[in-house]
Amino acid sequence: MERFINLTVSVLTQGLIYSILTYGVYITYKILDFPDLTVDGSFPLGAAVTAVLLDKGIDPWIVLLIAIAAGAASGLMTGIIHVKFKVRDLLAGIITMTALFSINLQIAGSNYSVARTTPTIFTGFPATVLLGTAPLPVKKLVIFFIIALAIKLLLDLYFRTKAGLLLIASGDNEMFVTSLAVDTGKAKIMGIVISDALVALCGALVCQEQRSFSATMGTGQMVFALAAVIIGLTLFKKAGSVKGTTCALAGSVVYKACIQLAILFGLPANLLKLVTAVLFLGILIIGKSREERNA
């Protein structure tokens, strides 16, 4: 039983951390209809910045803010390449991602570890005061829960503002927004900037949790986030009653739970990806059949 609780805590924690990344991809992929491949570069960018700055002794919360700014800058680059220079969406993301690979290596090399004595958001103030001597996994779970929830609520609020509505409209019906004499380009850039800021924040959180950065950590994150968004939407989107951000959050947790289950099945290690794929397919089929019954 203890093991079950421990594993659940671990899965929830991982799901919550990566939900931040999933929110980001939800904005670009689902709202803007813009497949933003910058993710594979901006995710490690957040981690690279974090690893180096933590090592320099900068406050871990301030480090998070700097990582967000770095991510936003990378999103801005993709946005400008796409909107101002009229480069195709996929290609714009690929250009930034490719550039970021070198930039990340420049910032932190191929690997960068942070010593255990360096404070992170889990071991420094205010976690120590608020959560006292709670075990580290519990601290992590609580902090990530607060962060994931806070960002979800902030995004939900943002989508109800004028700027947020414009963002949604730009993705839904670009012609309509243009006909209102509003520039969709700016809204698009804004969306990509927010998205990559979140993605880099996720990278920064992963780095604080793992105390390490590796240049390859971004590989496959886009695929993960897309799968998580789609799983979340398929399973939990029922006639608009559940918010998209909630679906993204749930999708991330379900994805990580699938990986954990695949690990637990104890099959030959090489079959891990296959088991994961089968689990996803199962979820998507169940989700689809429920959708049809409801319709």
């Binding site: 594993l7 805590v9 793992q210 390859t216 690990i263």
Partner: peptide, 14 residues
């Protein structure tokens, strides 16, 4: 790396 993280945390949980 992300899978390694989950594997290692699984070990800790076990």
């Amino acid at each position: 790396d992300a899978v390694c993280t989950q594997i290692a945390q699984g070990f800790a949980a076990e």
